[in-house]
Nucleic acid binder design. Sequence first.
RNA 1: GUGGAUGUAGCUCAAUCGGCAGAGCACCGGACUGUGGCUCCGGUGGUUGUGGGUUCAAGUCCCAUCAUCCACCCCA
Length: 428
Amino acid sequence: MRYRRPRGVNDITPAEVGRWQRAEEAYRSLCRAYRYEEIRTPSFEQTELFIRAVGEETDIVSKEMYTFEDRGGRSLTLRPEGTAPVVRAFLEDKLQGQDRERLVKLFYIAPIFRYDRPQAGRYRQHHQCGAEALGSSNPAVDAEIVSLAMSFYRTLGITQVTLLLNSVGCPVCRPQHLARLKAQVAERLGEMCEDCRRRYADNPLRLLDCKSPVCREITAGAPSAVEMLCEECGEHFTGVQAALQALEIPYTLEPRIVRGLDYYTKTAFEFVAPGLGAQDSIGGGGRYDGLVEQCGGPPTPAVGIGIGLERVLIAQEAAQKATGLEACATQRQGVLVVALGEEAWRPVLGLCQALRQAGHPAEVDYRRRSLRAQLSFADKERFRWAVIIGEEEAAADTVTLRDMASGEQETLPRGGLVSRLKRENEPC
RNA sequence: GUGGAUGUAGCUCAAUCGGCAGAGCACCGGACUGUGGCUCCGGUGGUUGUGGGUUCAAGUCCCAUCAUCCACCCCA
C-alpha cells in the first residue's frame, strides 16, 4: 500500500526549494527595507475569528474552511487567509503599545488552507507573503503597500505585472451603491442568465462582469462603485491615485475588482501576470478600516496585501522563459573526499568532519567506487574540489587537491588542507 | 460545487484493428586498472494511477474510483 499526498497539496522538493528560499529571502529583505516587522501566528485559530472577520456569507467561510473540533470540544479552523490572525495578534499582543496613533507595520510568510477545487495555480494549501499596516488612514500607506508588492515582483524578474485598482466604498456608500444596482436590474431579473440571478442575491457587484449580451445590456449604464463613493471615500481614492502617480506606479481602474472578503473598505487592488491561465492573480489586497473594531479593538484604519507564492513562482518561471533567460548554472561548491582503498579510507571521516567544521560542505562517496566514478560524481554534483586520498597519499599523510573547474591539482600535507581551502572560499 | 481532457520507466513520450510493453534522455558499468565533462559499447529500471468487468487474449473496450490539467466559479 502506498500513500499519496492529499488532493490539492504539494511537496516542495529539494530541486525546487532553492527557488522558494530565494523568493522568501527577497521578500524578507524588502520588508525590512520598508520597515515591516515579521510576525508569526498559529496555523489555526478559533473558527469564530474567521467567521466574524471574513464574513459568514463569503465563499471562504461558507464552503472553503478546514474546520475541526479538538479533543476539548473547541471549534478550530486552519488559517484560510492571513489578515484576521494578524489583527487578532495586533489586539491580543497589544502591538500598538501606548501610542494610539502609531502605525504598526507587520509582514508574514505563511501557509493558507482552503477547500477549493484544485487546478494549476490553485491549491488547498498555498503560501502567502502578506503585509499589513495598521493605524493609518493615509492613502499614501495604501500606495506604500502596493509599492512593496511591485518591488517584490520586479526583484523576482516578473515584469509584466498589471495593477488593477478599485474602491469598494465603506459602510456608508456601499449599501447605497448595491441598492441602486439591484434596483436597476430588478425589473428584468427574469431575463438574466442563471449565474446572474444567483449573483443578484449573493454578489451583486459581479453582475457587471457577465459575458452574456442580454445581461450586459441590462446592466449597461449602471453606476460603478467609484461613481457612487461618498465624499470621504472619493477623496481617499483620489489620494491613493495621487500617491501611486508620485511613485510612478502605473495602474488600471477596474470596477470588477471585488475582494471576496467582507472586511474590505475603500481601496481594493489586485496584481495580475501572464503565464498563469485563469488563475492569473498573483496578489491582492486592500483597506479594511472596520475590521479591528469589529474584532473588539479600538477604531483602527488599516490596509494589507496577500501575495500567493506558488503563483509568483509560476509567473517567474513564465517570465524567465519569455525572456529566454535560463536559470544560471548552480555554482560549484564544497569538497568531495575521494578515498581509494582500505588504507586511504581511515583518515577520510576525520578529514570530512574537519572540513565541515571549517564551513565547507563536505561529502564522501560511501559507495567506495572507482576514482573515475567518484570524479564523475563530483562533477555532476557540482563540487568545487575533490580531495583524493589513495595509497600514496595515505602513506605520506598527504592529500591531492583537485580543482574541479580547471582540473589543476596539487599535493599538500593532510593537516594543511583546511587552511589551504580557507584562502579559496570566494565563489569561482 | 459544474462541465471537459489526460494518467505507460526517474523525465519526455511511442505502442496499427484488442495480439511478445518500447525509444530518447537520465542512471550504472566498460572501452580508459589512480583522474570528471566528449565519443562509442553494454546494462539496470514497469502492478501501463487503482479496483472491478468483457474477452482465448486488455496499455488499448466497459464501469467505478483516485490524481493531475483546462474552462466555469472563486481567489492568492
